[in-house]
Design a protein around this nucleic acid. Sequence first.
DNA 1: CCTTGACCTTGACATGATGGGAAGGTGCAT
DNA 2: ATGCACCTTCCCATCATGTCAAGGTCAAGG
Lengths: 146, 146
Amino acid sequence: MNIGEAAAASGVTAKMIRHYESIGLIQEAGRTGAGYRTYGPKDLATLSFIRRSRDLGFSIAQIRDLLALWQDRSRASADVKRIAGGHIEELTAKMQQLQEMVMTLQHLSSHCHGDDRPDCPILERLATGVGDEDCCEPAAAMKGRS
Amino acid sequence: MNIGEAAAASGVTAKMIRHYESIGLIQEAGRTGAGYRTYGPKDLATLSFIRRSRDLGFSIAQIRDLLALWQDRSRASADVKRIAGGHIEELTAKMQQLQEMVMTLQHLSSHCHGDDRPDCPILERLATGVGDEDCCEPAAAMKGRS
DNA sequence: CCTTGACCTTGACATGATGGGAAGGTGCAT
DNA sequence: ATGCACCTTCCCATCATGTCAAGGTCAAGG
């Protein structure tokens, strides 16, 4: 199986397959006499594993660990669960950050006329930092930002 | 005002101030005889504007537009609102992606023993793609991923 | 046999926003 | 005058991915 076929079958681009090989995430592929990389079913399974992990937002470092656990028959499921749990926390934290931004923006936007006049609470807030963040709702947004 | 003081006062690192200057986001700062950059109150206001915009997740390109509007007294608030609205949509889309990931991960994690045994639905899902995603809840998660 | 087109190879460079560090000059206080 | 804190420019790194270029290979058809 060529790299192109492996890419199509796994959903990982050829470019990324080479990249993953170069950083040691996957083993070096076999080669034909002409230097073409060759892939078997086991390689395909690994590539698909990686793609699904990426789809769930795992970093390459986390995938490295997950792959190691996957290939370790004496693994403890607790180790896998711990990685997943940490990842859930990261994702949740990011979501909360985004949520705060969205809340603030929606609040500011709702008070912007959105017409031809230059008056704009969004710009005022960006310029002065003292838009009316706490005037109407006791929103917890933007209270403890970094 | 030195770059260090401007950085401390605005919350933008000296590194980033130089970077913003190099990409033309801000004007070139004045210089002392020795070549040190100097900043005045107006520069400080601009830097603070940029930092607040970044805190709200705006990209550099968006900030470029926001700055132009800010400095344009004949702006229409509709233009500002449109930028903010687009940004809200971007953020919301990202949040939904993260939400889907979290839902899937939590579902898988909840079925993982998390003990010494190697059995793990998380790894199974990553390996085969056919974990029990729709067995219990009709979760809309991971139905139309890219 | 030769061409053509699709594929492969490596390598370099870009993204976006930021951090880190080196090598060398400046300002100020002791 | 010595030292320390700050400034300058320039290069490299991150993370995951894409793009492009120059060249080699394979298979099919003329």
